[in-house]
Design a protein around this nucleic acid. Structure first.
Length: 498
DNA sequence: CGAGCTACACCTAAGTGTAGCTCGGTGCCTTAGT
């Protein structure tokens, strides 16, 4: 079978990028595969192309609605009509319609939460699924334990769907994350195809400051100097908003703010504006980035350090997808670690909340007995005041799977303790990377169990960086005029021409 | 931890200082009634 022929016919490419062929051959061989490819090297092709060579459909589990919509549109733009995303964007009527005609589709995108739905599972069971894809598979390990528990159930559903050939795709996964992927997808024999996570065109720099004031002035002067476009990450929505406003006034850049506090419509608009160069800088929280395929991001600045090295690599990986020189700058103040510690602290229920929840459920039981048929679910549905959704869901999960009040308390406390410990270790490792001496790239690669094999000219602040490379050469307005006709057309119609 | 808000003391009244509190990140999914 001629893979190149299909590559050209369906995707108009003449050759594969590094790694794609190997992954495609692996899944076509019927082998469950975990593939680790650096960001922006064409992961989606690795399941889209095999789709055309198998009889059944390809079921893709994707973490974000916007990511699904994006992929659906891309496939449709290539002329593929048999593609759909089953999610809450569909109205009740649309969803019924789609499910009735489910056999018609070649590529079906779905969230882990939807996959868990009994009705949908039944319908999927009637299908021939030739390939099951878990996109951004590190989410299993990163989110499954507390934030999005349905991620841990994918393996169970996978078995119920008849254990189709499975492909897990990600850009960042240490061995322990890959082990989690294997375990929670219930994979036995796995082909691991691993490519280096290094991005040699991104220079690393940590700028040490003392306290908030110095951080402010440092950020402002950096942004004034640096060549855009760029992303600035904050650990608070409020700061992202404030800085977008401030930078709009203080610089010639057009600056937007992106975080989960905005409604979906606004978020999509902001993403598009950034993509089509109407916005030069995005002040964002960690909500921004996954699935942003902007080629020319020149810098990523972190106002606060992220919670672990994986997140850091993911976030800076949004720079320099075009292969051009880009820089990742982290502003570090020694007290930064406490903010992250506190976020972690508040994420999981504390012992007082566990106690309170236990009492509440004891009372609920009394009420249920009196009313006979009334179900426990009504009490567990809505979080009480003072509980976050994540806390409540975790409490509910442990409560429903425990024999009695005592096993509930001990098991959830044990879980929380272990989870916190784990997160603290990850945070410490992030901190260690920041304060350690020696080559930052080497230290980063070392964390992912890799060696630094090549000499990088502008590697990191410890090896030496020529800052001028990353500085602004022209004003933005001049840049705009220099666009060629394709780029100007692209700006006007906000479309992609490739 | 630390920024930022609120309440309150001070007591010619008004505006200021401060103690004490809260909050701080990621995303799916909600199947109602004329």
């Amino acid at each position: 079978m001629n893979l190149e022929k299909i590559l050209y016919e369906k995707f108009s490419y003449t050759q594969f990028r590094n790694g794609q062929r190997e992954i495609i051959e692996s899944v076509l061989n019927g082998t469950d595969t975990i593939a680790l490819l650096p960001t922006g090297t064409g992961k989606s092709l690795c399941y889209q192309l095999p789709g055309y060579l198998v009889d059944g459909c390809v079921l893709i589990i994707s973490p974000l609605l916007s990511l699904m919509q994006d992929q659906v549109e891309q496939l449709r733009a290539k002329g593929e009509k048999r593609v759909v995303a089953i999610n809450s964007f569909l109205s009740f009527e649309e969803k019924k319609q789609v499910l009735r005609n489910i056999r018609y589709y070649k590529f079906i995108y779905i969230s882990p939460e939807m996959l868990h739905n009994e009705g949908i599972k039944k319908i999927l069971q009637s299908l021939t699924i030739s390939l099951l894809v878990v996109d951004e598979a590190h989410c299993i390990s990163q989110w499954g334990y507390d934030f999005r528990p349905d991620y841990l159930e994918i393996g169970t559903v996978r078995k119920q769907l008849g254990s189709p050939v499975t492909l897990a795709l990600t850009a960042t996964a240490r061995q322990e994350v890959r082990d989690d992927i294997k375990r929670f997808l219930k994979l036995e024999m796995v082909n691991e195809i691993i490519f280096s996570s290094d991005r040699p065109n991104i220079a690393y720099m940590v700028q040490r400051v003392n306290g908030y004031e110095e951080k402010r002035t440092t950020l402002l002067s950096l942004v004034k100097q640096l060549q855009g476009p760029g992303i600035i990450y904050f650990s608070s929505k409020k700061l992202a908003d404030e800085w977008a406003k401030l930078l709009n006034e203080a610089t010639s850049y057009n600056v937007g703010a992106y975080h989960a506090g905005l409604d979906m419509e606004q978020r999509i608009l902001l993403q598009q504006q950034f993509l089509f160069n109407e916005l030069d800088i995005m002040c964002a929280t960690s909500a921004f980035g996954m699935g942003i395929n902007k080629e020319n991001v020149r810098f990523v600045i972190h106002f606060h350090p992220p919670v672990d090295i994986e997140s850091y690599l993911q976030e800076i990986g949004r720079a320099g997808r075009d292969g051009e020189k880009s820089i990742a700058i982290l502003l570090y103040s020694p007290d930064d670690i406490h903010l992250q510690m506190q976020l972690m602290e508040g994420e999981l229920p504390n012992s007082l909340q566990i106690e309170y929840f236990g009492q509440y459920m004891l009372q609920a039981k009394v009420t249920i007995n009196n009313k006979e048929q009334s179900s426990m679910d009504t009490f567990l549905q809505q979080p009480l005041d003072g509980f976050s959704e994540v806390q409540w869901r975790l409490l509910r999960k442990f409560y429903l799977s425990s024999r009695d009040e005592n096993t509930f308390k001990t098991s959830i406390q044990h879980f929380i303790e272990k989870r916190k410990q784990w997160k603290q270790i990850k945070l410490q490792e992030m901190n260690q990377w920041i304060i350690s001496s020696g080559c930052r790239r080497e230290n980063m690669l070392h964390y992912f169990n890799e060696e630094k094999n090549i000499d990088v000219l502008n590697c990191c602040d410890h090896c030496g960086i020529t800052m001028e490379i990353y500085q602004k050469v022209h004003s933005i307005k001049k840049e705009r005029l220099k666009l060629n006709w394709q780029e100007r057309l692209q700006e006007i119609f906000a479309i992609s021409l490739d």
